[in-house]
Each structure stands twice: as structure tokens, then as C-alpha cells.
Design a protein around this nucleic acid. Structure first.
Lengths: 342, 342
DNA sequence: TTTTTTTATGCAATCGTTCCCGACAACGTT
DNA sequence: AACGTTGTCGGGAACGATTGCATAAAAAAA
């Protein structure tokens, strides 16, 4: 099945003009006489002419499209960030092409390759939890493809980065637990490769240190796929509560981990009602859980916006950008029942 | 900032061959001698040559991209459906470009225009709740752009459609409420323009009729933006409970409406504990609510898959497709606490 | 009337790729 | 020796749009 659109040639033929004249008339060039211009414009309108963006891309060597690579759009943080990305991109005349890595380095590489090779003008990337090898991105970046990282960033590539203040967010959440009397605070977190994991762990440690609570390695559990595989969260949870020293609070890092944890937490057989729980998540259903969930909320929409602005700035810059910044946006601790003093 | 990639010309020049020979060697044409082929292939590999998809699109008059138009990716149903779409599309070598209408006819039109004009080979559409005028889609469809509707469909365009069995799903949910002793069952639903609204209302009515409960117009409230604007759900809720005959159960249609309703339902000031609640939603957090929520779950992933298969079939068909089908997939009623007998 | 200037238009190259032809060896057949 | 095959390869035209340059006709200046 083929889909035929009117081209500049059709107009030229119909009006007995050359394609150049039509092209210029369409773009309102002063060289074209008002009558011809009017003729062309009216005919173009009549047959509903639209310039072929693909031909334009080829000519101008740009596609006016930006690629987004995230792990899962079903994750609240990312769907909100994408809304932020779109809000800026569409206003500036850019398409947004979204692809998901599903936390797999393999799929991330394939998607990036797919998006690159001149079909996008720039990339907005949040790394998968599996990613340790950045050569696929580095190669493209070195060739001149603008890339901005957001949320899950890397130090291996020197470019703009936009992140939440994860360390401070984790610090506040942990300190909040401490203030409410909790002492054995477990931390279930994402893959240790991720920047967000390191930053949040750091905040967690800082809060413990400030309040003279000794850091206990055994209270930190890593879920290498960010909770995408429920089993790994299950295992982390089991291990935490099968040890000698059971935690009296859980601090989770990551949307998926938080909700999956909550479902174990609500296990009807075992009672965890003495255990406090809080975590990073951007769900807007936290009020509806029982107990309602204390959350660390990231400014996802704004992160998406800022990252997009920086990327478009890079794309449209005449000279290579060499001065890079890392924008950090504050998180918000929303206190609800799940962390109240017992 | 510009991003340079190696082209077939670079290879030709380096190897002192013509572009045609290089092109043929790369595609493994039998006309090229094994030695030349090897030479070209090795050099291409060395400089990491990737064919320019834009040039290919222009030449082949197809982009190997399909456009998706949904109201909100943050909606669980849609993000799951998109996963289904992707799973098929990527395997068949198609890109997926997602755009959101945010329940606005205006934005839907802009996005569709943007996606069309030869930059996508076909469209997967779920209409916005505001859409009454389909001329933008009709025009493109008549020109030969393959379109498949899913979830929120229309009769005005004769093409493939993929939907959940909304009528039966609504019927089962309503009947379940009736079996559990509820009699004054309210129905809070989406915009009356939408196919899903009509179908679910129909199922609701059928269940009432079967059990000899008179249909009461006042128990049905419409939220014209599918719950995107919390106020309209608020109003619907208020009206239902300010009347003389208060409902003893609520049946909601739509992800957003269901969760927003739940938050009013959990209003700490007013007590709705006698009121049962259930609705269409694809959240996987229903277990975590309090009370845990009885839901009608749609096979979102499968709907996305089937729609994509049908679309690609249309795109790749040599002759215009004239035989259209409407695939209907079963929903699943998952019974939890929120509808238990009181 | 002739020359210069202005105005309006067309030609052709370009972007990267494919593919229809045509070119031209090195054969084998008559 | 003349011709047809076969195997390799290059030339060049597309695909749709833009744009520098050339050029025709018309208008203005000489």
C-alpha cells in the first residue's frame, strides 16, 4: 500500500513553472512576483501540499528529531520526564522519538544505534541499570552527536547532565526516619553501577553518620534490574528479614522497587506493621496506599524540560560546545503515614 | 554543531570504485566479484559505515517508522499497549514514534499532521476524549496512509480496529456488584463521544436489565477529559452523593477516573466505607490500595501487539486492503476487597 | 535607439542511496 | 574472424526540496 503526497513538482507541472520558482514562492522569497506567489500559494493550499520532511532532512543534514532513551516508560518518573521533554521539544519544532532499554545494555545499544546514524539530531539518555560499557555512546558523541544525560548519568562522557539532588533527597528521607525513632534502616536500591544508586547511598550514609548510627553493609541490598524482575526484590526483602538484626525501616531507591517492596510489605501472612517504609517514587497514588506512603518525589517534568533545553542549545550551537554544566534539581519529601513514629 | 557520518561515497573514493559498485557490494549483489566485495565490506566495517536511513527513506518512499497517537503515556493502559506495539514493531524493523494528545482534539490534529506527510508509514491511533471531528484522519486515510485504531475507535473510518471487550467487561463488573448485593450502582465514565464510553455504558445497562434493576440516568456521570482534570471527577463525585438516592457502589470507566475516584473515596472526612468501588484500570498497584481494588483489566499489551501486526500487514500489502476486521480481546475481572458484600 | 538596471524565472547541483543501463573485457561458438 | 555470452563494473538518473548562478524579458536610464 502506498501513500502518495503532493510534491513541489506536481505544483510546478500544474502551474507550468519550475520547481525552483515554486519552492521560492512557498518560502515567500522576494524574487517572486506577487501574482506567481499568489498562484502557487493558492494551489498549494488547494491540494494540501506539505513539504516532505525526509527530503528536507537529507538536504539540510538534520532531522529536527531528538531521541530519548529510557529504561521504561511505564515508570512514573520517566513518563513525567518525557512529558517535560515533549513540552519543550514540540515548541521548538522537534519531534521526539522514545525508545526503551528495559534495563538491558544490549537493547540500549541497539536503540542508540538505531536512533543515531543521522536520523536524530541529538540524544537524551538515561542509562540502563546494566550499562557499564559506554563505548557505543562515546563513539557517537566523539563524532559530534549531541548527547545530554538525565537522571542516570555517567562521568565517562563530558557533556551536560541534569539530575535530581539524589544525595540530599536520600539524606532527608533517612534523617526523617531517624527523627521518627528508627535505627536499623535498610536500604534497597538499584544496580550499583548507576549514578543514582551511588548518590542515594551517599545521602543515606551521610544521614546515618550525622546521627551516629553505624553503617551496616548488610542492610543495603541491590536489585540489579531496578525492580523490573520481582524476584530480585523478593530476595532482597527476604534476606533483610531473615538476618539476626531485623530492620525497623526500609528506604527504597526507585519507583519500581518502592512499589514492589510495598507489596511484600503488605504480605498478609507476615506482619510488618512495625516497619516504616519510604522511598523514591513519582507515583501520584501514594495517598491511596495503606499505609499511605511517605515518598521522595523528583521534579521529573522539570528535569525533562531542562535536559531538552540544554540539548537543543547544543544542537543549534554553531561551534562545538565545550563548557558543560550539571544541573541539579531539588527533590521533595512528602511525609505520610508509612513513616510515622511507632 | 554537526554530526558527520561516513557515506558510500567515502568508501568509493577510498577504494577507487564507483558508488554503485560499493552499494551493490554492501547489499551482496551477485554481480560483484568476491574480492571487491570483501574489500568493500572490510573497509565499511573499519570505518563503521551505516547507511543513511533518511536517504533510504527518500529513495524507497517509506520511512520504516510507525506513529502512535495516544492521550497520555502516563496512563497504565497506554504505556502497556505501547510496550506491545514496540515488541512487534522493532522485530519487524520499524521505529515507533509516540505522541500524546493530552485529550485535546487540537493537539491530536497537530500531532497527526506532524507524523504524516510521509514521515511515518502508518498510524496507530487511540482517539482523544475531545475528538468529534475526524476529518484530519479521514483525509490522510483516503490518500492511502494506513491507519489502525485501538481502544478508542471510530465508525467513521473503515479500517482495522482492536479493542477490549468493553461491553462484556462492564457487564461482568456490574453483575459482580449486583451479586454482592449492591443495587444503586453509579457509573462514572469518560467523554460520551468515545467508543469505550458507549460500550462500557452498554455493558452496565445490560447487567442492570438482566437483574431487573431500573436504569437511572442520574447515576451516570461523564468526565469529559477522562479524569485528566481532577475537578470534573470531583464534581461528578459530589453530585452523586448529594442527591436523594445515594449510590451504594461506583463503577468507573478508565484508568485515571478510577484512581482519582479512589482518592475522593478515601477522603478522611467523609466515610464511604459502605460504598463498593470497582473500575477499568491497568495499574498493577491495585493490591496495595486500601481497600484493595477490584479491577477490570484490559489486555493492553496484546491489544498493542495485534494492532501493530494489522498495521504492518496493511503497510506491506501490495494491493489496497479492503477487508477489515475488528478484533476484540477479553478483559479480566480481578476481584479484591473493594467490592465485597457489606 | 542603445545601454544599463531591475525583475522574474529557470537550470543545475546538492544531500545519500539505489538501480536501470551501458561499457568492456575475456571467454566460447560458429 | 566475427559474433554472442558472461562477468564486472561505472555512469547517471531518480527520490523532494533548496539555492547559487545564469538568463530572459521588461523597465529605466543614457
Amino acid at each position: 500500500m502506498k501513500f502518495e503526497t503532493a510534491t513541489i513538482k506536481d505544483i510546478a507541472k500544474a502551474l507550468n513553472l519550475s520547481t525552483s520558482t515554486v519552492s521560492r514562492a512557498l518560502r515567500g522569497s522576494y524574487e517572486i512576483s506577487p501574482e506567481t506567489k499568489k498562484l502557487v500559494l493558492e494551489y498549494a493550499e488547494k491540494i494540501n501540499y506539505r513539504p516532505n520532511p525526509i527530503a528536507l532532512s537529507l538536504k539540510e543534514r538534520r532531522s529536527r528529531a531528538i531521541g530519548v532513551v529510557v529504561s521504561e516508560i511505564a515508570n512514573n518518573f520517566f513518563s513525567q520526564a518525557i512529558n517535560g521533554i515533549e513540552s519543550i521539544a514540540y515548541n521548538r519544532g522537534y519531534h521526539v522519538i522514545i525508545s526503551q532499554s528495559h534495563e538491558s545494555q544490549e537493547r540500549e545499544m541497539v536503540n542508540v544505534q538505531h536512533l543515531a546514524s543521522r536520523s536524530v539530531d541529538g540524544l537524551l539518555v538515561s542509562l540502563s541499570s546494566e550499562t557499564t560499557d559506554l563505548s557505543h555512546l562515546k563513539q557517537l558523541y566523539d563524532k559530534g552527536l549531541p548527547i545530554v544525560f538525565f537522571d542516570r548519568v555517567t562521568n565517562e562522557i563530558d557533556t551536560h547532565k541534569v539530575i535530581a539532588n539524589n544525595t540530599l533527597g536520600a539524606f532527608h528521607a533517612t534523617e526523617h526516619l531517624i527523627y521518627n525513632g528508627y535505627k536499623r534502616i535498610a536500604h534497597i536500591t538499584n544496580s550499583p553501577y548507576l549514578s543514582i544508586t551511588k548518590e542515594r547511598l551517599e545521602g543515606y550514609k551521610q544521614a546515618l553518620e550525622k546521627h551516629n548510627i553505624e553503617f551496616n553493609e548488610n542492610l543495603v541490598k541491590y536489585c540489579n534490574h531496578g525492580g523490573m524482575i520481582a524476584d530480585e526484590v523478593d530476595e532482597a526483602f527476604q534476606k533483610l528479614f531473615s538476618g539476626k538484626v531485623k530492620p525497623d525501616a526500609i528506604f527504597t531507591a526507585g519507583d519500581r522497587i518502592t512499589t514492589v517492596c510495598l507489596s511484600y510489605y503488605k504480605n498478609p501472612k507476615k506482619k510488618y506493621s512495625d516497619v516504616a517504609i519510604t522511598g523514591f517514587t513519582n507515583t501520584n497514588l501514594a495517598d491511596l496506599f495503606s499505609p499511605s506512603l511517605t515518598t521522595v518525589r523528583q521534579p521529573a517534568f522539570e528535569i525533562g524540560q531542562v535536559a531538552t533545553e540544554l540539548l537543543i542549545q547544543m544542537i543549534e550551537s554553531k561551534r562545538p560546545v565545550t563548557d558543560f554544566e550539571t544541573r541539579m534539581l531539588d527533590t521533595e519529601l512528602i511525609i505520610r503515614e508509612s513513616t510515622k513514629p511507632r
